[in-house]
């Protein structure tokens, strides 16, 4: 089967968009460890890209390079045409690790990037309220992180990112610690957000169904040193209903296809 299908259907209008992120022969090394690459891959503006692959194959590494917290050993990562050489303030990065500040309430944690960006108080308060509602943490504004569960902390991190409305969302298994119901709800919210903002999403996950539900394209990485071994276009109609989409006959076929692609023979 061809790696990259011809993009003909109207829902892939995104293929006309300029490239937002461009990995050009990127290799990551940690000392002697060849962790990832060479990876060549571009993400278009407004695209929803999902990345799947075995643990330790370099998915987080890939995101770190877009955020500018890690430099490639070889190759270059470009963001809107320019090589990323410093921290990239256009990205909203929801990391695998939780970085809630324990001395700040939920509200104050979500407000943090707005304070850094010198957003006026009233506007900041409005955005914080909306972001907290979106992730379903209404009622917990005044709680401190130590009073919250893992999944709630993860949602605080998401709300914090939503609040400053970045151009690109990097999400590293953001829904890993949520229950199935909440996860489905978050999928709906995420698709709405994507539709409303036209932002670019790079979404790392281990959950194939999740990847198919959300993404325009799913990149399947090989084991370490990870490189994209397969890119599958998800040609399901948009806008998608996160529940109905699962009963689409093509959905099951995509799951099968991705399983086969992941399989290490």
């Amino acid at each position: 089967m061809s790696v990259h299908r011809l993009q003909s259907s109207p829902m892939n209008a995104v293929s006309e968009e300029p490239v937002a992120i461009d990995f050009d022969g990127v290799v990551a090394r940690f000392g002697a460890l060849h962790a990832m690459g060479p990876t060549t891959l571009s993400v278009r503006q407004g695209e929803f890209l999902a990345v799947v692959g075995p643990s330790g194959c370099g998915k987080s590494t890939l995101l770190n390079m877009v955020a500018g917290t890690l430099r490639p050993a070889e190759g270059v990562v470009r963001y809107k045409g320019d090589a990323v050489t410093a921290i990239n303030h256009d990205v909203g990065y929801i990391t695998q690790k939780n970085f809630c500040l324990p001395w700040r309430t939920v509200e104050a944690n979500v407000r943090l990037p707005l304070e850094f960006r010198r957003i006026p108080k009233a506007e900041a308060a409005r955005r914080v309220r909306i972001a907290i509602d979106k992730v379903g943490l209404g009622g917990f504004e005044k709680a401190y992180p130590r009073q919250l569960s893992g999944g709630m902390l993860q949602r605080v991190m998401i709300a914090r990112t939503l609040a400053y409305e970045p151009d690109i969302y990097l999400m590293d298994e953001p829904f890993g610690s949520l229950d199935a119901q909440l996860r489905t709800r978050m999928h709906g919210e995420l698709l709405k957000l994507w539709q409303e903002t036209g932002a670019t999403f790079v979404f790392v996950t281990h959950d194939l169904q999740e990847a198919i539900t959300l993404a325009d394209r799913v990149v399947v990485m090989s084991g370490r040193p990870g490189r994209p071994k397969r890119v599958v276009d998800i040609e399901l109609p948009r806008p998608r209903d996160v529940i109905d989409i699962q009963s689409n006959p093509a959905f099951g076929a995509y799951v099968k296809e991705l399983w086969a692609a992941l399989d290490v023979h």
Partner: peptide, 16 residues
């Protein structure tokens, strides 16, 4: 140290 890195990513300057 990642906590500091993360704050920078969120837009924190030195003073912040």
């Amino acid at each position: 140290r990642d906590l500091v890195e993360n704050a920078r990513l969120l837009g924190a300057g030195k003073w912040d």
